[in-house]
Design a protein around this nucleic acid. Structure first.
Lengths: 199, 199
DNA sequence: TCATTTACCTACAGTCTGTCCGTAACTTAC
DNA sequence: GTAAGTTACGGACAGACTGTAGGTAAATGA
């Protein structure tokens, strides 16, 4: 308890920097915003930034994780909220929640487009793994165990599902007629899920 | 014909810059290589670069298109090469060719990870659209027409298929056991295709 | 209270991008 | 063939941005 004040100060500036980076990266992209702008938004100096993070890329990693955590929480809540506990129903609720989340520019820019490029695909997935990826993988494993889903390799399957969901999101948000695009993609996703039914 | 010499000179330096950028971007990524290094590799001056391209990003767009063109050509050749002309068979050959192509770092780095981030998702797809995307979409449309494929929206479906293929590629190349990963992903893809069968 | 660690600030050096202006090569008009 | 005009390219410069080094203030432990 004796270390409280120091630790609090640290945590406050750190999370302030993450919050600032989150706002700015979402709007201008990683390369489009300088460290000066970030520290100005967070009302600290560049020194504070480089004290808490090795470099700008590491700050971005922190921001990515924060965004991913929020999105995963929202998806999990929505997916488990409905009445129908069947695998396909849960997944459809999850994908709807995901498409909703992707309306936010910060998700598109930070999570989908900049993430893999700035951090590299492997590190990007590594950060997202504990969140959405494992969420889906768990659902898949349960589905296989309950006999609802065909006995396929679970992790690759989870990757494939997420890939379709990611692409669907980008397709929808950059479509002229987003309403129609979302309907189309929902149909595709539903069909994909049905394909995985056991038998 | 009188304009030959000027035009040739232009084309030569332009394609030289694209080739140099292709090599260097593939190895170090867009942000990891400076214009100085590119012009040195191409044996021209920075002035030449900025004469032919508005900025570094536009050079990257040129590089991306070159890579995409090569990959599309290879995929088309492989897909149409086999005996079985059935939709699923063609698509499986296409995805095998794609996974082969993704062994090359330039495809992973330029096409998959840097592309969307540097150019933005919409522009990235816009450049790839005339190549692989329309290739797949055409196959899908034909499949629907011949009754092999369920009557789903063709373009979104093509997007979904490409998304799975892209993810499969990244999953395979960054897996510890690439052999096993590729087998797993092939199974997933096959199953996905079967899901699209009409009926 | 005093030494030590932690948190933070400021100034600086190095690098990179895009632009400006000049020059050379080439093309067209006469 | 030559003068005028256009296109291709070169080199220097300004501006911006990143990461670092060295110093100060606050907090902690003895």
């Amino acid at each position: 308890m004796t270390r409280r004040k120091q630790a609090d100060r640290s945590a406050a500036t750190r999370s302030g920097l993450v919050a600032a980076g989150r706002r700015l990266f979402a709007e201008h992209g990683f390369a489009g915003v300088g460290t000066e702008a970030i520290v100005a938004e967070a009302a600290v100096s560049r020194g504070a930034l480089y004290h808490h993070f090795a470099d700008k890329t590491e700050l971005f990693a922190g921001v990515l994780e924060a965004v991913e955590a929020d999105v995963a929480e929202e998806i999990a809540a929505q997916a488990l909220a409905g009445d129908d506990p069947a695998f396909a129903a849960v997944m459809m609720r999850a994908v709807e929640a995901w498409l909703d989340a992707c309306e936010a520019p910060e998700v598109q820019r930070i999570l989908l487009t900049d993430g893999p490029s700035v951090l590299g695909w492997a590190r990007w997935r590594e950060i997202c793994q504990p969140y959405v990826l494992s969420l889906i993988e768990t659902a898949v494993v349960q589905g296989i165990a309950s006999g609802e889903v065909a006995d396929l390799p679970a992790r690759p399957l989870a990757h494939a599902l997420i890939a379709v969901a990611d692409e669907a999101a980008m397709y929808v948000v950059s479509a002229d007629d987003r309403e129609a695009a979302r309907k189309d993609m929902t149909v595709i996703f539903e069909r994909t899920l049905r394909a995985l039914a056991a038998g």
